[in-house]
Design a protein around this nucleic acid. Structure first.
Lengths: 340, 340
DNA sequence: GACTGGCACTCGCTACAGTCGAGTGCCAGG
DNA sequence: CCTGGCACTCGACTGTAGCGAGTGCCAGTC
């Protein structure tokens, strides 16, 4: 029951060795590679206890031990020391992200950077519209009965929708509409627009009411309710790195999961007070990802959080390193957004 | 040298059987499953010739024959009959695409549809900006020194760029700028804008010349020269279907290639007079894809071509079926774009 | 009581031999 | 030119044996 310090040290050594070598680790190899100060036999006893408690297991009788999901969990929670990034890595992050000109560019660079640094699959959610404030709304006449609504958010995100009007509209009226919606909505968080929109329609001059209604409908339905989230993905080739030993043989379920936006959002989008989250193997709610681990965090300018990012890899991953990288990248991206 | 009809029939039978079973096919099985009207021994002689000519090969001595890339090529060029889509498939395509509300939506639905129907990786290029005409240009003031340039193309594609002005600009001047650029550029194909842009700057009123210059620079550099192509991808999970026999064991090179936009564009973007193109194994210029085949085509409203689409799979693929599907989907999408 | 050395045991891995059978190439005959 | 027959090849599979990494347990020592 009680795991004394040495048993914990043994567990840590097992995790570290296994992550490094990808091979079950035995008692003898363990005492050779780590200064545990005891004999293999003692380690074996400790291992027996650790196995009984479910932290490690034996693939087969005559093999070494491998950490279980539970073992990784303990390792992450209590045994891993933070591994600070090297100055070179910090510089690389800074340099790589500094060149971005655009929100699109920022997101793309971020996701590639994450994939490259962690050598795993990276996922980055675009700043969520719901968490953004309206910076500007633009109405572009396409024809007399069609407008294009362009929403520019303070996070730099831009989204456009086609609005089919119930009746032809005059150019001056378009300007009118635009002025009104901007007056009422600029600076407002998108998730808080619904109550305001009704007022917009009510206060509208009668002959524009029809147009205003469809406009608001588009705004609400396609941008607010149906949370239009966008996501960038990179590094899927990294899945095929570990010689098919990770992910119990088939990449198929993983690749399938990664194709579903909903799944990806669930992975990284559930932003919570605790900034960084690690889900190990079985802890994942998505069945297809039971053989994988996910390290995710929220990001945003200052203390606010506008989106999530994270990486996905085999349960046998370098948790301290991955956690440090994800955290650092998220912070830099946050700073970048704050400058805007 | 001369391959008589029966030898060709044998090759066709081998390709069809191998595609279906994924196992080397022997002479006996061949005469059983196809009405060739001759004995296995005769087929063996034909096979020997086909092998000598490089159309098929034996994985090992005591195994059946497998088509080579060259064999597939001959099959595609001369032996495969067009396999018309079933009415159900046609309806499925129509129904699935009809619901699209948006260009983004069209592209996404198309790529998923292709992946699903062919059970392979699908790639769809957004309508190329260079091949589109300008429908409208919009300038949205973000601050006194920042404009957002929104380009709306006749294909429905919308692209925006941030323009950092050299000096603060007055709101009325923004309207002025907008009017001028729209007057000169609407209806013009983007690839033909460069010469016009210089005139724009020259004819511009002096106090707006600075703004007009940076504006044009952004327009030319980020939208015309640096061909801003966008691409959608789906069905990567299908790569992991064939029990790792396809793609000689490792998905890694394929996944790596699929992560490079440049590579994808090369795959499907080189639109040529001949509408449909099949590249088999070695014929691919990209080294990572030497174990794959690509079926690609251009699409667009009417006879014009605004982008490419295609699928990628193992060389051992159902060419007639895939070709028929790609062609059909491209046609439907073209019709959809034409309606707009 | 905790640690250690020693020892028997388990069991996956590899090598090797043997068998089976699918598939071939070749040849003589129709 | 096609066919049936036949010898041959060689991968796949099976069974056996030896090796060795790794373990669990126990008696002995500090």
């Amino acid at each position: 029951m009680g795991l004394d310090d040495r048993k914990l040290a043994v567990l840590r050594a097992i995790v570290e060795d296994y992550v490094a070598t990808q091979e079950p680790v035995g008692s003898k190899a363990l005492v050779e590679r780590h200064q545990l100060g005891v004999s293999p036999a003692t380690v074996r006893n400790d291992m027996a206890v650790l196995e009984e408690e479910g932290y490690i297991r034996q693939p087969h009788t005559s093999a070494g031990r491998v950490p279980t999901d539970r073992g990784y969990r303990l390792f992450v929670d209590r045994l891993s020391r933070v591994k600070p990034l090297s100055p070179a890595e910090r510089r690389a992050i800074e340099r790589f992200l500094a060149g971005a000109v655009d929100l699109d560019d920022v997101v793309h660079r971020t996701v590639r950077l994450l994939a490259q640094l962690t050598r795993q699959v990276a996922v980055v959610q675009y700043p969520s519209l719901a968490r953004s404030r309206v910076r500007h709304l633009e109405l572009v006449p396409i024809s007399t009965t069609r407008l294009m609504l362009v929403v520019i958010a303070d996070t730099g995100r831009v989204e456009q929708r086609l609005v089919e009007l119930p009746a032809p509209i005059h150019a001056d009226d378009v300007l009118d509409l635009r002025r009104t919606v901007n007056e009422k909505l600029v600076g407002i968080q998108l998730s808080e627009t619904p109550p305001l929109v009704q007022a917009l329609i009510d206060e509208c001059v009668p002959h524009l009411r029809g147009a205003m209604t469809t406009l608001s409908t588009v705004l609400l339905e396609t941008l607010v309710e149906r949370h239009e989230e966008r996501i960038a993905l990179a590094g899927t080739a990294n899945l095929a790195r570990g010689g098919l030993l990770d992910f119990q043989g088939s990449l198929r379920p993983i690749l399938e999961a990664l194709e579903e936006e909903v799944v990806l959002l669930k992975l990284i989008g559930e932003v919570e007070p605790s900034t960084l989250r690690v889900r190990i193997g079985d802890e994942n709610e998505i069945d297809n990802l039971r053989a994988a681990s996910v390290v995710s965090t929220g990001y945003g300018p200052g203390a606010t959080i506008v989106g999530g990012m994270g990486v996905l890899g085999p349960t046998r991953m370098d948790y301290p390193g991955t956690i440090a990288t994800v955290r650092a990248v998220a912070r830099y991206v946050g700073e970048l957004l704050a400058q805007n």
